[in-house]
Write a protein that binds this DNA or RNA. Structure first.
Lengths: 122, 122
DNA sequence: CATGACCGATTACGCGCGTAAACTTCCGCT
DNA sequence: AGCGGAAGTTTACGCGCGTAATCGGTCATG
């Protein structure tokens, strides 16, 4: 099932550290997003229903942890965008950003290092 | 204003060729998406209201053309994804796809050529 | 044991989206 | 001039999302 924008913020929070209680999650991301505690709880429940999270009882609370892997989510999202806008080609995206000088010196260096590394081990 | 998924398909159609009538657009993308003509008309109207299209009268019909530039749309979408998932770093996206051998030989070659080219003209 | 606090579960509500039918207008034809 | 059809305009409707308040159950405490 699809993870929505707001839900993905909760996932990001749990990917950086888990397990956590809803209170901890609210403390971590609530004010930054202008959310009430109730909003965070709603998002947690929707993620539970979508099977993206697991909740383990801990006394009167739950500890939430991600079931969906961050790498899988990132991959799905990225692949979807690449397919829709770049014919599925990573190089086409890089080409887009290289036109219009959107790449910093540092980025270019990292890209070159990456390519060399990949190239060396086929 | 935000362009939705379905709307963006109509935009893609007009970016490849414009201007076109709603009938032509329907012929081009209707059946591929399982849409009725009415659906295409709804999407065209929503895009008009969002200011993403212009419509010029041509007898009893309209000719639609994009106002929103494809490059701008692609850039917005891409930047949003990069910021959300890769800390804004194009190289981080490439790194993701290079792990797990998601890159074909051809892609790697293109990337190397791109980097060299960028590198040569700083 | 009764009561309040705390926490999860349920319910709410407006909005945009996907999807499309119904309505309206205008033009050409008979 | 009246009518049928073509094209655009308006209305519809269910669903998920963002956002949250309210309900309900349980545990601690007086």
């Amino acid at each position: 099932m699809r993870i929505s924008e707001a839900e993905s913020i909760v996932m990001q929070c749990l990917w950086t550290q888990a397990p956590r209680t809803s209170e901890e999650i609210f403390a971590a991301i609530g004010s930054a997003n202008g959310w009430q505690e109730a909003t965070v709880k709603t998002l947690l429940n929707r993620l539970l229903n979508k099977g993206a999270l697991a909740a383990e009882r801990d006394g009167r609370r739950y500890l939430y942890r991600p079931l969906l892997k961050r790498a899988d989510y990132v991959h799905e999202e990225s692949k979807s965008l690449l397919d829709r806008l770049y014919g599925g080609q990573v190089s086409a995206l890089v080409a887009h950003f290289s036109r219009g000088e959107k790449l910093s010196r540092r980025e270019i260096d990292e890209l070159r290092a990456l390519i060399e590394e990949i190239d060396r081990e086929p």
